[in-house]
Each structure stands twice: as structure tokens, then as C-alpha cells.
């Protein structure tokens, strides 16, 4: 489903999309990291995660091509098993993994997975944002860690089917350009927390099947439908809009419009609700503050009225000093 196209068709185009400069640079960087049979990449993995292991001068780089995502997933699983049997270092370039999400398989493609000589597996994420003096944008690192945690879970499912089960390392390797150069540098990121959170969410998603069940039969998000039909289809999916969505989802401008039209206070941020108790619309809050509605015994209403009085007093005082 192409959410950007869908958003434009709904009349709320987003500012999403990627600059070709960033794309070119990202691809060039990944190619550089993986050049020479992944020599530099394996050096980084060994240096950061497994310094005691044998030098990674020669590594196997199995061919993972196959037909269709299922085929590639099977090929990857086979390559992982063979790598463990063969010993030494193996680099899996763009393997394919499957993870069950709400009952159906989702296919995932990590940048790389490395098999260590001891048989353990490491997820490698290659990003083109810089590590400057050893630190990187925490929001971007957080997103990379959550992404890697999903790969770890998918790998664990593969590992569980092998006997003996190889260890999937919970430290993933994040590879980024160093400072202002295009030279790769890396940092180990412990994704145990993200892994635990994702596992719990996936567990819950299996119960969200019920939500899918409530959708009208034949619901289909295809941007070439007329706008009213599309809106009806999208609105059948419950979504709770919050401004944080704007940086994460192509449909956020559409959801924002709906949220504003419904007069929801959360259109201003989820934190706004913290002190408003059961009041959820802008008009409810303002009328409670004006003393036109609401139970004065409700502390939220009482606090609103005090806030409104103090605000009015301050503004009045300022107007005529």
C-alpha cells in the first residue's frame, strides 16, 4: 500500500519523499561499506563485537538470490544453517527474513547479517547519517535500533528452528559515516529493550486481528478510487492522531484534518489532555473554563476556571498598567 499516493488522493498531500541526493549518497555509502567482499564491514563487526575471534580476512558471501520473497527467505535460512556448519565468518548481504504479524507473514530485508566463527548471528544496520565525534542523532539511532530489533526477532524465529539453536546477538552493529567524511565507523547498540517492546507489541497485534475483522468487506486502499470512497475506507480504520504522527506517517495530514474537524484537544498534542480529565473537545474545555458547563466539583473543571480567571486577570493588568 503506497501511503504517499493515498494521502495525495485524499487531498492531504504530505511533505514526504526522499531527495535523490540523500538516496545516492546512502547507496554509495552502503556499497563502500560492503566493498571487497565486506572486508571493512567484517573488520568493524569483529572490532566492536567479537575482538577475540579470528581475523575476518576471508569470509563467505553466499548468493542469496531466489524467486519471490518466500524463495529468498528460504534461501536465507539455508545460508544461515550452512554458515554455522562451515564455521568462520559469513556475510549475508541483504538477506530476507519473515516475521508473522497479525497472522500473516511480513518480509524484512536487513542491510546485512553476519555469522561469527562461534556460530552466533549479528544484525548490521548501515545508515547514512553521520557519527560526529562518536555520537549521532539520538532519534535516528532510536529508530534504527527499533528497526534492528524487528530483525533480531525474525532471526530468533529462524534460529529456533535449528538444532542446536544459534545465538542471535542483542548487540547490533550500527555503521555510519565518520564525522564529515564518507569513511565508515560503527557503534554497537544494545537492542534488548526495543526487542522486548516489539515482541510484546507483536503479541498484541495478533489480537488486533479483530480490528481487521471490523472493516467493511471489500475495503481496499487504492488511490484511484474516488475521494469519498477512499475517505470512507480510511475512516473505517481507527486511528488516534497526535502531532507526533506528522514526522512518521504519510497520512498524518489527513488524520489531523479529521481530528481538528472533530474538535479534539489532542490535535494540539497528547500532553494537552493530561490535566483535562474527561474533557476531550476544545469547545467542552472552553465552555467549562467559562463556567457555562461542567461540574465545579470535578477538579479538572475547577482548575480550568481558576486558570481562566488568573489568565484574564494577568492580561487585564498588563493592558492597563
Amino acid at each position: 500500500m503506497d501511503k504517499t499516493a493515498l494521502a495525495s488522493a485524499l487531498g492531504s498531500p504530505s511533505a514526504f519523499g526522499q531527495s535523490q541526493f540523500a538516496l545516492t549518497r546512502g547507496n554509495a555509502f552502503e556499497a563502500k561499506v560492503k566493498a571487497d567482499g565486506g572486508a571493512e564491514l567484517l573488520r568493524l563487526v569483529r572490532g566492536h563485537l567479537d575482538p577475540g575471534a579470528e581475523a575476518a580476512e576471508r569470509a563467505a558471501v553466499p548468493d542469496l538470490s531466489a524467486i519471490g520473497p518466500e524463495g529468498r527467505t528460504a534461501r536465507t535460512a539455508l545460508a544461515l544453517r550452512e554458515a554455522g556448519e562451515a564455521g568462520g565468518w559469513t556475510l549475508l548481504d541483504h538477506p530476507m527474513l519473515a516475521l508473522e504479524v497479525a497472522g500473516s507473514p511480513a518480509f524484512l530485508e536487513p542491510d546485512a547479517v553476519v555469522v561469527h566463527p562461534d556460530g552466533s548471528w549479528t544484525v548490521v544496520e548501515i545508515k547514512s547519517f553521520p557519527m560526529l565525534d562518536g555520537s549521532a542523532d539520538p532519534a535516528k539511532v532510536g529508530a534504527a535500533a527499533r528497526q534492528a530489533a524487528v530483525y533480531v526477532l525474525a532471526l530468533e524465529a529462524v534460529a529456533a528452528r535449528l538444532d542446536p539453536s544459534p545465538r542471535v546477538r542483542h548487540d547490533v552493529l550500527l555503521v555510519c559515516p565518520k564525522d564529515f567524511s564518507n569513511l565508515p565507523t560503527a557503534s554497537a547498540v544494545d537492542v534488548r529493550k526495543q526487542r522486548a517492546v516489539t515482541a510484546r507489541q507483536l503479541d498484541r497485534l495478533t489480537r488486533i486481528e479483530e480490528i481487521a475483522g471490523t472493516l467493511p468487506a471489500g475495503t481496499c486502499f487504492a488511490p484511484d478510487l474516488p475521494a469519498e470512497q477512499l475517505t470512507a475506507a480510511v475512516e473505517a480504520v481507527p486511528a488516534t492522531y497526535a502531532p507526533d504522527c506528522l514526522s512518521a506517517c504519510e497520512l498524518a495530514f489527513h488524520c489531523r484534518q479529521r481530528s481538528r474537524a472533530a474538535d479534539e484537544v489532542t490535535a494540539l498534542g497528547r500532553a494537552v489532555r493530561a490535566e483535562l480529565g474527561g474533557l476531550t473537545t476544545v469547545e467542552d474545555v472552553l465552555s467549562a473554563a467559562r463556567g457555562e458547563s461542567g461540574d465545579p466539583a470535578d477538579p479538572a473543571v475547577a482548575a480550568l476556571r481558576r486558570a481562566a480567571a488568573l489568565r484574564a486577570e494577568a492580561l487585564q493588568g498588563a493592558a492597563c498598567p
Binding site: 484537544v265 490535535a267 494540539l268 498534542g269 500532553a271 494537552v272 493530561a274 490535566e275 483535562l276 476544545v282 469547545e283 474545555v285 472552553l286 473554563a289 482548575a303 480550568l304 486558570a307 481562566a308 488568573l310 489568565r311 494577568a314 492580561l315 498588563a318
Partner: peptide, 25 residues
Amino acid sequence: MSLITTLARLEAVSTGVAQPAATVR
């Protein structure tokens, strides 16, 4: 966010124009 700021924001929604969050610079 203090409730006073929240109120100002909601008034801005309702009036369609930003409300003062300060009386001096």
C-alpha cells in the same frame, strides 16, 4: 504545559488567531 498555556492554545483554536503567551518580551 501549564493549564494557562493550554487554555491560550485552545482559545487560539476557537478564535482562529494566536493568543498572547507573554505580556512582555
